[in-house]
Nucleic acid binder design. Structure first.
Lengths: 237, 237
DNA sequence: AGATTTCATTGATCTTAATCATGTTTTAGA
DNA sequence: TCTAAAACATGATTAAGATCAATGAAATCT
């Protein structure tokens, strides 16, 4: 299923600025580079599936990966989108639980795999790695709890405005007059990010377009008026 | 506002079995015991407030504390309930953000405060503490993401069934024929845990009582039929 | 203990968003 | 490149749950 290639040149994930290894020296990085295994995943392929047992963590070199969790009645939730330099699968590994979510490549993707005992050893020996993992988990948890609060206290219009601002921050590409959100999310996927039906999401996207907050070309969305979008969230974010 | 007493005897929080210090020896614990400051909080008092800047972490010795986050329109969400042996305020501290939530004592509470630089030093020197913090964050994050999924994919009845099972696990006291949920939550508080209106919550509690799933004495709820409750969540949890 | 405030409960009504239905456009595959 | 399958879009209808309203029961304060 997955195409393994131990020889593949891939420094991107371990040496990425925002990654958990960013404070290690070249000498400290080389054992990681030797140990990890680089894999290529085609669009739509899974890195792991809900219920599987984790044996290590993934480190993303290129491509976006979505984490989805199954709910009742065939519905699902898009929990997080993982990008270049991010780690993946650490939450389940470190809590010693099986995967709660499925990781699927949203486009052709290159990811490295680091063995469980190796990454745990590294955390024990390198406090900077431990602190980076703690920092990442803390930030992601803050985001998850904020999303939970939004689900409880905001309506679909407000949640959509919030989502667009978050996607702009994380994946926005500035084009001067507007910001391109460089993810080719389907409307179905977007709807599972804010807990609504695809039809409802589309209706609000139409409303946002008419009000001049955003523009659309195919699946791609462009943020035109961030200030008004912020107003429409009904909060200071 | 808070009653400080450096001399108060309090070993509970640092030596608690499920706590982050549980793998440390007596000699490794004593500097923590010396450094921490024990405080007493009356019911309703805040340990910290949304927007404040964290300077350390709290370690709970006795009493339950609720973490709430403000939303739109005066609404709020009960994010987590923190109990004996748990740490509190670590998420904001380690992500270097201001507090996203307010911590309020649900009853008279004793909590210790550990200074930021001290706890970070400890994490750097004691890998077991780092790993315990990572494990705790990972578990809590899994719970938060699961709740998010429930909000997206389950209706109020299913979410209430799920909440009762979770509260039974975390705070249940076995009474043979039934399990007492030993938290005196108001209906308002419970409703902010699953994102519904208090009136709606009460209607479903009545339904659960009539179906024989639970019993009620004042604010206290007793789980009578866990199996049926699990069925009513519409999932395998 | 009595008074006051807060909380619980149930009923009636209204709103938001889900669902169902249908046509159109885009994408991917042979 | 043509065709089948997804995905998009919009209208009509329905249902879940919010909101409003009013009363009764607890808890708290003096």
């Amino acid at each position: 299923m997955e195409l393994k290639n131990h020889k593949l040149e891939c420094e991107t994930c371990v040496s990425h600025l925002k990654g958990i290894f960013c404070e290690l020296s070249h000498d400290q990085l080389s054992p990681i580079t030797n140990q990890k295994v680089t894999n290529i995943y085609k669009k739509g392929q899974s890195l792991f599936v809900e219920g599987n047992h984790p044996n290590g963590i993934f480190c993303i070199s290129t491509g976006n990966i979505k984490l989805t969790e199954q709910g009742n009645d065939g519905k699902e939730t898009l929990i997080r989108i993982v990008t270049k330099g991010d780690i993946l699968g650490h939450r389940s590994l470190f809590s010693e639980q099986s995967y709660h979510a499925t990781a699927t490549a949203m486009e052709d993707t290159r990811a490295c795999f680091i063995d469980k005992s190796f990454i745990i050893g590294l955390i024990k020996e390198q406090p900077s790695v431990a602190l980076k993992v703690i920092e990442k988990l803390s930030k992601d948890m803050g985001a998850a709890e904020h999303r939970l609060n939004s689900m409880h206290t905001r309506n679909v219009r407000e949640r959509l405005a919030e989502l667009l601002l978050l996607l702009k921050e994380s994946h926005g590409v500035d084009e001067g007059t507007r910001t391109k959100i460089d993810l080719r999310l389907t409307r179905e996927e977007m709807s599972t990010m804010i807990g609504t039906a695809p039809e409802t999401l589309i209706r609000f996207i139409s409303e946002f377009k008419e009000a001049g907050l955003i523009e659309q070309e195919g699946k791609t969305i462009f943020v035109k008026d961030e200030g008004k979008l912020l107003e429409w969230t009904g909060c200071q974010l």
